[in-house]
Design a protein around this nucleic acid. Sequence first.
DNA 1: GTCAAATAGTTCGATGTCGAAATATTACCC
DNA 2: GGGTAATATTTCGACATCGAACTATTTGAC
Lengths: 156, 156
Amino acid sequence: MPTHFTGSRAEMRTLDTFIKLTRCTNALLSRLAERNTIGDLTYSQFAVLEALYHLGPMTAGEVSQKVLKSGSNMTLVIDNLERDGLVRRERDAQDRRVIRVHLTEAGSHKLEDVLPGHIAALVEELSVLSASEQETLGALCKKLGMRTIQDRSKTK
Amino acid sequence: MPTHFTGSRAEMRTLDTFIKLTRCTNALLSRLAERNTIGDLTYSQFAVLEALYHLGPMTAGEVSQKVLKSGSNMTLVIDNLERDGLVRRERDAQDRRVIRVHLTEAGSHKLEDVLPGHIAALVEELSVLSASEQETLGALCKKLGMRTIQDRSKTK
DNA sequence: GTCAAATAGTTCGATGTCGAAATATTACCC
DNA sequence: GGGTAATATTTCGACATCGAACTATTTGAC
C-alpha cells in the first residue's frame, strides 16, 4: 500500500515486511472464511468453543484470556453462543461473582462437526510452504510476537 | 489455544505455525495501538488517509480495494472521516454514480503529524528481527499470502 | 429509443471489538 | 463488624466489519 513512500533503507524494509505480514494474515483468514470451514459459527465463537472443548469449563475471564479478547467482548460472544444453545453459564456457588462457562452437548457436537474440516483446510492452505519453511515462519513470528517492553535487544 | 490438540505431525506443525502467525500479527498491532502512534485516528481511518495521501484522490470503490475492506465498510469509515473534516466527497460530473474521495488540508496535516512517529514505532518494533530475518519473514508471508490472489483470479 | 443488466454507492441488521462506567460480590483492614 | 479495596462480569457508546438488499445512474442489446 505505501508503495509511494520514500524513506531510509531500514524504513522501507520494515514497512515492506509489516505490509506482507499483515496482508498474509488477512488473506489467510479471509480464505478460511470463504471456505466456510466452521459452518455457521463466527471465528470468535469457534475460538471460544475450541478453548472450552480442549481445556474444559472456564470462567468468563479465563475464556477472554485464552482467546486474547476483552472481557466485555466475551460477554457478547458468550451471549450469542448461549442463545444458540452451544454453551451455558453457571454461577459459582462459592464465589458468586464468578460465572463458569460450560460446553453443552450441542456445543461439543458442533465443534466435533467442524474441527476436522477446519484443520484439513488449514493444512491445505499452509501447504504452499514446506515443513521447514513453516518452521522458519513460526520461529520468526514467535520472536517478533514475544517482544515485550523490556526487550531492549537492539539487534540490527 | 489448541494446545491440547493431538493430530498427525503435519497437522501439529501447521496449527503451530498458524497460531504463531496470527498471534504475532495481533501482538504487533496491539502493541502499536498501545503506543498510540496514530493519535486519535482508528487504524481503518489511518489506512484510508494514507492511501489517499500516497496515491491521490480515489473513488470510494478504489479506496475499499486499496485497504482491502468491503464497500459498505468504507461508507462508514469515510462518513466518520468526513464528519471530522479530514476528507471530502465529490460527486463525479461525468458519471454521477461515482464519488471521489479527497484529502482535505486538515487530513493531509493530520497524516503528516502521525506518519513519522508511526513509522519510527514500526521500525523499533520490528528491530527484534535482523534485516535478513525481516526479509525472510516477508518472503514467506508473501508466498503464503499470494495464494489467495492467484486462487481468486483463477476462479473468477 | 426503450428497457434490462451492470455498476457505484448507501442502508440495514448482525456480529465483533474496545475502554470506561456500572453492578455485584468478596476480601481486607482496623 | 463496618467501611473500603479488589475482583468478576455486564452495560454502554463508539467504531469496524460483512453480506444482502436497496437506490441511483449508466450502458448495452434489441
